[in-house]
């Protein structure tokens, strides 16, 4: 039964929005007292502070990151007690291609602070495991996916991929369908390498006849 349809609600006559809304831009750092506090306590610890879409970023210098993080966590005026997440972004064109992002949350201020650290390929980053337990698995995942190593991490090994896997999938040069063919050949029954063919490529695997029982 067709329902009696109410007339289609008209879209409210909104003011003619400009065709192209202005792209968001960097603004001055919004947490003035945090900035003043850090400038007096650790003046050289960061190179830039800005706010983007309401998010407060600090570009941190590597040497002072542990000290800065500890201060933000322990000092009662800041109280960023929770490390919500650590993640990394790969910018292959940059001189220091990886950017680590630490997301801190303060339960008393109910607000976030983002720390950014640029890391070159092969360079290590200081581990936050001494300050937050949550850094343990987060850093392991970054190591697994990007190959960034962390100093003084208690148990830095792969977490999602097998321990003897080669390659770090979230790097930009890692192909979408790329796999560690050798690992697969070693570990998955279906595609045992045949000595005269060597390791079959993925393309060859597609044409393998698996309907016949193996001899």
């Amino acid at each position: 039964m067709p329902e009696e349809k109410s007339p289609r609600p008209e879209t409210p006559a909104s003011p003619p929005a400009d065709k192209k809304p202005k792209p968001p831009e960097k603004e001055p750092f919004s947490k003035a007292e945090t900035l003043a506090f850090l400038q007096s306590a650790l003046p050289d610890s960061f190179s830039e502070a800005y706010t983007f879409l309401g998010q407060d970023f600090l570009l941190v210098n590597k040497a002072s990151l542990p000290e800065l993080a500890e201060l933000l966590k322990e000092d009662p005026s800041q109280d960023y007690a929770l490390l919500e997440d650590i993640t990394a972004v790969d910018y292959p064109q940059n001189e220091k291609r990886f950017e680590l992002i630490y997301i801190l949350f303060s339960l008393t201020r109910q607000d976030r602070l983002f720390l950014k650290l640029a890391v070159a390929d092969g360079e290590t980053a200081p581990s936050m495991t001494g300050l937050w337990e949550s850094a343990n698995w987060a850093e392991r995942e970054i190591y697994d996916m990007f190959g960034i190593r962390f100093d003084e991490h208690p148990d830095l090994k792969r977490i999602l991929l097998p321990e003897d896997w080669h390659g770090h999938p979230l790097r930009k040069e890692y192909g979408l369908a790329q796999q560690d063919e050798e690992w697969i050949a070693r570990n998955l029954e279906l595609i045992k390498p045949q000595s005269h063919l060597g390791v079959p490529s993925n393309k060859e695997i597609e044409h393998l006849d698996v309907s016949q029982p193996k001899s």
Binding site: P23, P24, F52, L53, Q55, E84, D85, T87, V89, I101, I103, R112, F114
Partner: peptide, 22 residues
């Protein structure tokens, strides 16, 4: 979306679910 990055987190049934989009 314009170039930039955003972190948005919600309270999923299991806890804080965050998205960091660049």
């Amino acid at each position: 979306p314009p170039a930039g990055e955003i972190y948005h987190a919600i309270e999923a049934p299991k806890g804080v679910l965050g998205y960091y989009i660049v």
